[in-house]
Design a protein around this nucleic acid. Structure first.
Length: 433
RNA sequence: GCCCGAGUGGUGUAGCCCGGCCCAUCAUCCAAGACUGUCACUCUUGUGACUCGGGUUCAAAUCCCGACUCGGGCGCCA
């Protein structure tokens, strides 16, 4: 097999190269034939004028089908008519793998396919340059996140994804059969990362996969998703956590906008402006903004999908911000471990274009208060024994957040469906591939 | 979980309201042919489809019922 010497975006005029890739399109004009060869980094034009290539090569250009994998050896020539100004005059073409005709979808994007058809044939769908771009960006989001958190002295950890009971009881859990017992798939690392605060590790983060058995059928929900979770000790208030979160997200956006210009252009996305800090909108402000705009929202309730979306538009109009914190929620809307000031939760949500991408806050670290709150929420103290134990032998004040990676990417890239930003999304209906 | 909507060649669609003019439109793909600068090449010819089951009717892609599959909204949630 011919060995690749470079990707399609790295050809130099006058050099001999070997490209490997997929036959994206073919054009046969009789005396001159073109193949557009697609690889990871782009598309190169292979040009075969009858008089400039061997008869064998000229003929073989006809026999190739769409999406066949080939290796092409040839000379790079600059040409004003070629896309990108460069083309390859082939001297050798090797077929590496053939593809059956009647592709289940069209990777050259001339004809759209439904999201369902696309996901059923995801390997073909991902061949589309625009889909590939999403996943290159996604990779960079995680690189940037690690880079920032490590720079702030966070330690990366891994916690169990199977356990005996649920954590916060907010969302539905997937039960699984665990030998002779029942167990559950993790929906959040919440309790574990809090336990880590009792270990002296001080600042930890985890990037992992979580499972939620919600009966949801929307563009924003998945049964499996990924999150970046952090927890940090010795904090005075939730503002210190928000500082980390806003800098983390800013760093991610900056990193992506600097390193993935080509991909962002391809997707038609401009992620600027890149604010350093994000606006704080209190719950009370949010309610009055919504009431002014004619929405029927009542104080004391969590915001519904419609209100959340509307608030995104209001904040954008008023201040021009895509990203903003929602702070000072009523305590009743938050989980039992949330710290408080009277009836106000010391917690926050981070919304991006009207969709919640993160929530967090300062936790209760006093074991007696924690027990009281567990009882108040109607939960049983005994089922939290292992968790509560870690609060009895020295627990610093602490807090953290969970940031939904799939939702961040969806909002950042203006994807219409969260599934677009996940390689193989699984949801209420889909379990394959 | 509740509600709304949709299933037509490989893919994306038109037709459905108002049954017959539909052995079903258009694009792309595929096959064959022509063409020396295409870049969604162009042109000619051809192959290929009404989700399934039941019902109404002289007649069903079209109307009714059910099943299956999918999309979306809400709730819940990140």
């Amino acid at each position: 097999m011919l060995k690749r010497t470079c990707y399609s975006d790295n050809m130099k005029d006058g050099k001999e190269v070997v490209l490997t890739g997929w036959v994206h399109e073919r054009r046969d004009l009789g005396g001159i034939k073109f193949i557009l060869l697609r690889d990871r980094e782009g598309i190169a034009q292979i040009t075969a004028p009858k008089k400039k290539v061997s008869e064998e090569i000229f003929k073989s250009m006809d026999s190739l089908g769409r999406e066949w994998i080939i290796a092409v050896k040839g000379d790079v020539k600059s040409s004003p008519q070629a896309p990108g100004g460069l083309e390859v005059i082939p001297t050798e073409i090797e077929v590496i793998s053939m593809a059956e005709p009647s592709l289940p979808l069209d990777p050259s994007e001339k004809v759209d396919a439904d999201i369902d058809t696309r996901l059923d044939n995801r390997f073909l769908d991902i061949r589309k340059p625009r889909v590939t771009a999403i996943f290159k960006i996604r990779s960079d989001v995680l690189t940037a996140a690690r880079e920032y958190l490590l720079s702030q002295a966070f330690v990366e950890i891994q916690t169990p994804k199977i356990s005996a009971s649920g954590t916060e009881g907010g969302t539905e859990l997937f039960p699984i059969s665990y030998f002779e017992r029942e167990a559950f798939l993790a929906q959040s690392p919440q309790l574990y990362k809090q336990i880590m605060m009792a270990t002296g590790m001080d600042r930890v983060f985890e990037i992992a996969h979580y499972f939620r058995a919600e009966e949801s059928n929307t563009r924003r929900h998945l049964s499996e998703s990924d999150a970046i979770d952090i927890e940090m000790a010795f904090i005075e208030n939730e503002e210190e956590i928000m500082y980390i979160l806003e800098n983390l997200v800013s760093h991610i956006l900056k990193y992506v906008s600097e390193n993935r210009k080509k991909e962002l252009d391809l997707l038609g996305v401009d992620i600027s402006p890149l604010p350093k800090s994000f606006r704080r909108v209190t719950y009370d402000q949010a309610i009055s903004f919504l009431q002014e705009a004619g929405f029927n929202v009542r104080h004391g309730e969590d915001l519904g999908t419609e209100s959340e979306k509307a608030l995104g538009n209001i904040v954008k109009e008023k201040y021009g911000d895509d990203l903003y914190f929602l702070t000072k929620y009523p305590l009743s809307t938050k989980p039992f471990y949330t710290n408080f000031d009277g009836n106000v939760a010391r917690a926050f949500d981070l919304d991006y274009k009207g969709v919640e991408i993160s929530s967090g806050g300062q936790r209760i670290h006093n074991v007696d208060i924690l027990k009281t709150k567990i009882k108040e929420k109607g939960l049983s103290v005994s089922s939290f024994e292992a968790y509560l134990k870690t609060f009895r032998f020295g627990m610093p004040p602490h807090g953290g957040f969970g940031l939904g990676i799939d939702r961040l990417i969806m909002q950042m890239l203006n994807l219409e469906n969260i599934r677009e930003g996940v390689l193989f999304p699984h949801d209420r209906r889909r379990l394959e591939p």
